[in-house]
């Protein structure tokens, strides 16, 4: 039930944001997310709320690490 999906912020109006993932759009609340996301950010959405702004740098670091381990012994 703690299922939460990353969605892209398309529009922000006060405490509401329109988010989208693969063509599905939802209106979600921003009461609980800090720092507040901007349009273009990815946020983790759970039960109609953004809970977390995805740290793009962390995500890239992770991918870089995975690409590295593909090319060496782990």
């Amino acid at each position: 039930m703690c299922l939460a999906v990353p969605m892209e912020v398309k529009k922000i109006t006060d405490n509401w944001a329109v988010v989208e993932y693969e063509g599905t759009r939802r209106e979600v609340r921003l009461d609980l997310v800090d720092p507040k996301p901007e349009v273009g950010d990815y946020v983790i959405i759970h039960a109609g709320f953004a809970l977390h702004r995805i740290d793009e740098e962390e995500a890239k670091e992770n991918l870089k690490y995975w690409k590295e381990i593909l090319n060496k012994d782990i």
């Binding site: 039930m1 703690c2 939460a4 979600v28 609340r29 609980l32 759970h46 039960a47 109609g48 709320f49 809970l51």
Partner: peptide, 30 residues
């Protein structure tokens, strides 16, 4: 979402709208 339940409460003033709140720490802040 809980905000859907709030909306139902606003639209149905003649009803008592009760949200059965389950969930772990992920859901409780919502």
């Amino acid at each position: 979402s809980t905000f859907d339940a709030l909306k139902l409460a606003r639209e149905n003033q003649n009803k008592k709208v009760i949200f059965l709140a389950i969930g772990f720490e992920t859901t409780a802040p919502t």
